[in-house]
């Protein structure tokens, strides 16, 4: 029934690959462009899938926290929640502030003066994110070898200015953005 050689698929492929010159260049250009479009399409499709895991609009718009600080006596600490994290507010005693100011810079792993960590004029108030900079545990107050904070997870010691003094943590406790709204009120964030 078949009167002629119909093995077209093989010959077709050979013809295709043996094509050369201008025609071949044009064809290659077409193939490359098409493939590039495919790559762009895949990339564009992946981005929404990745970005959806970033904080959403409601998390970004999370309200700042306002705290009444009038009730914090000298030597006392309170912990408030800001963006789901604990924030330590410590009304330091004068002795603690003096001790912090007396530390020479070369003893510090992450050198920062006490003045850089508290607001001038209200330097008794120390406001820090209560998260150990090592692996995220919450350090204990009034503990450790430097009279400040001590992280029980892996033994990081912080001084009375919340600076890292000994242990695996690389950085001082983080100071969040904050401002004093009035004598008695503080807004974090």
């Amino acid at each position: 029934m078949l009167q002629k050689d119909t093995a077209l698929s093989d010959t077709a492929l050979e013809n295709d690959t043996s094509a050369s010159g201008e025609d071949g260049t044009r064809r290659d250009f077409l193939y490359v462009t098409t493939a590039a479009f495919g790559v762009v399409a895949a990339g564009a499709a992946v981005w929404p899938l990745v970005d959806q895991m970033n904080p959403d609009a409601s998390a970004l718009a999370m309200a700042s926290t306002e705290v009444d600080i009038s009730a914090i006596e000298s030597g006392q600490s309170v912990t408030v929640k800001w963006r789901g994290k604990p924030v330590f507010i410590r009304n330091r005693t004068d002795a603690e502030v003096e001790a912090a100011k007396a530390v020479p810079m070369d003893e510090l792993k992450d050198p920062q003066t006490d003045v850089e960590r508290a607001v001038e004029g209200r330097e008794n108030l120390l406001i820090m994110v209560g998260i150990c900079t090592h692996l995220g545990c919450v350090p204990l107050g009034d503990a450790g070898d430097f009279g400040g904070w001590f992280c029980p997870c892996h033994g990081s010691h912080y001084d009375t200015a919340g600076r890292i003094r000994r242990g695996p943590a690389p950085l001082n406790l983080v100071i969040p953005p904050y401002e004093f709204m009035s004598e008695t009120s503080l807004r974090i964030g």
Binding site: D51, Q52, D56
Partner: peptide
């Protein structure tokens, strides 16, 4: 509705 309004590209997904 949270997905539709707040999640990044949530409406698209």
């Amino acid at each position: 509705e949270h997905i539709m309004r707040d999640v990044n590209y949530g409406w698209l997904l």
